[in-house]
Computed example of a mutant assay.
Amino acid sequence: MSAVEICEVAPRDGLQNESVVLPTEVKTELVARAVAAGARRIEAVSFVNPSRVPQMADAEAVMAGVPRVDGVSYAGLVMNRRGLDRALAAGVDEINVVVVATDTFCRRNQGTTTAQACEAARDLVAAGREAGLVTTVTVGAAFGCPFEGEVSFDRLEEVLARVADAGADEVALADTIGVAVPADVTARMALLGARVAPGTRTRLHLHDTRSTGVANALAGVASGADVLDASIGGTGGCPFAPNATGNVATEDLVYTFDRSEIATGLSLTALIESAQWLQEQIGRRLPSALLHAGPFPA
């Protein structure tokens, strides 16, 4: 049986676009539920300007409350040195640095051009590695941009060439607005694999905006992706991208992989129960298919 690692991103990307701001204790329970379901990498928080993303304003308090379990690694998203300093003080195990592939979106997301974001990523990765953290650089809007439309192969190659120089442990492609189809994933994962240094892990961050998330995940695994991001309940979206809806649901991926004999180490039953709980906390119907349809009938 083959295997794939899933990074649970519901506590960070899953909650950052919700209109409701959940209490800290609910966020830490979400993290604890992910750990209990078998998640061993969890993107728990982001250290960004709380006036821009108020849902993440309590990042330090969340990190102070997460269960510390052997083998579980907690990541925080950072955009600048201030964010990195906060992440280090909060005791994260990993940092995720975002570079958006188009200038228009990058300015809206983090107030810089893509080239400037690449330079910042290089500095943050170096500082993170020096501090002993695992480092990831995620190329956002790697498949399409809500403002500039198509992101050409040449543009992505240019950005990946800059990102590869940063020396991160892992490089991810993000379908931030959920426009990719499996053929796109296959082609762009091949480009990623050719651009990163040997030994660098590759990762996919997929959104299910157009119901292609599970198919794209399968294409990603077939293309050699080491890690897939997913979110309990299918929550998520970018506050700075119009109509950017949820990540591919963790339980939808686990169902598909279980039936395809691809191991994830995650409990489908626990994930569905947590999706039901999270739906109650958020107060709206979540898009997860398994949450509403259930697993294969007994």
Results as ranks from 00 to 15, higher is better:
S19N: 15
V20M: 14
V20A: 15
V21C: 11
L22R: 04
L22V: 07
P23V: 10
P23L: 10
T24F: 02
E25V: 13
E25P: 09
T28Y: 02
E29V: 03
L30Y: 05
L30K: 08
V31A: 07
V31E: 05
A32T: 14
A32E: 14
V35E: 14
V35H: 13
A37M: 08
A37E: 09
R41Y: 10
R41I: 13
R41M: 12
R41N: 13
R41F: 10
I42A: 09
E43T: 07
A44N: 04
V45M: 01
V45P: 00
S46Y: 00
F47T: 06
F47C: 06
N49L: 08
P50T: 09
P50Y: 01
P50G: 07
R52I: 14
P54D: 13
P54Y: 09
A57D: 11
E60M: 08
A61D: 12
V62T: 10
V62C: 10
M63R: 07
V66C: 06
V66F: 03
P67Q: 12
P67A: 14
P67N: 12
V69T: 15
G71S: 15
S73K: 15
A75W: 06
A75C: 11
G76C: 07
G76D: 07
G76E: 09
L77H: 00
L77P: 02
V78K: 03
M79K: 07
R81K: 14
R81N: 13
R82Q: 11
R82D: 12
G83L: 07
G83S: 07
G83T: 07
L84P: 05
L84R: 07
L84V: 08
D85C: 12
R86T: 15
R86P: 11
R86N: 15
R86F: 11
R86M: 14
A87V: 05
A89I: 04
V92I: 13
V92N: 12
V92A: 13
D93N: 04
D93L: 04
E94C: 11
I95F: 01
I95M: 03
N96E: 10
V97F: 05
V97A: 08
V99G: 02
T102M: 04
D103R: 06
T104W: 00
T104L: 01
F105S: 08
R107C: 14
R107M: 14
R108K: 08
N109H: 00
N109T: 02
Q110C: 11
T112N: 15
T112M: 15
T113D: 09
T114W: 01
A115K: 15
A117M: 07
C118L: 10
C118T: 11
E119Q: 15
A120L: 15
L124F: 00
V125Q: 06
A126I: 06
G128M: 01
R129G: 03
E130Y: 02
E130W: 02
A131I: 00
G132D: 02
V134P: 10
T135I: 11
V137C: 00
T138W: 02
V139L: 00
V139F: 00
G140K: 01
G140V: 03
A141W: 01
A141Y: 01
F147G: 00
F147A: 01
G149I: 05
